[in-house]
Design a protein around this nucleic acid. Sequence first.
DNA 1: AAAAGTATCAACCGCCAGGGC
DNA 2: TGCCCTGGCGGTTGATACTTT
Length: 190
Amino acid sequence: MGRSPCCEKAHTNKGAWTREEDERLVAHVRAHGEGCWRSLPSAAGLLRCGKSCRLRWINYLRPDLKRGNFSRDEDELIVKLHSLLGNKWSLIAARLPGRTDNEIKNYWNTHIRRKLLGRGIDPVTHRPLTDAATPAVPTGGGTAAGESVRQAGEDGAAAAGRHLLPLQHPQSERSGDGVQLRQQLPGPQG
DNA sequence: AAAAGTATCAACCGCCAGGGC
DNA sequence: TGCCCTGGCGGTTGATACTTT
């Protein structure tokens, strides 16, 4: 069968965005709002894939973005949230106003991961590395993140979960439970 | 001052879930 | 009821900046 490509690649730009492209995208979103990303490029006069436009807007152009270094509080919160949620960057980002999942993911991979390793903590399980040497038993689709979630249910919840409810199932990953989670948790917007 | 190595981050890719037809 | 389209997510890559030798 084959899935039709999200855009006509032969006629789309790739790579870094130019100032003009940014301006066009911002102007269009301001005028028409977010959404309908597929038709946005042609409507805005951009030779870009809709997905690329969406990514650019969310990660870079959105007016409510908080650029710059992560504060110590944010840093600690990310670690705690990661111990609860695993690599659910979008969920973590939802708890950090003005930060994007991509930004947090990058920050995790470049800063926090190394910091934890330096402290002798496994960045995946959030356990001491000596402990991590003991192979975590993959209980049917159970991930390291899932393991950490269980762990978080015990001590992590006490730390990070002051304003977080414990997750029910680590494997309940995709949107559905995420939405549920977002509804349950007191959000930054609400 | 230049080259090599390393770190950072924006952007892309492929996959998945939900909704509409 | 099943298929297709679209939006969204996480992982990965590539370009650039910075640091070290």
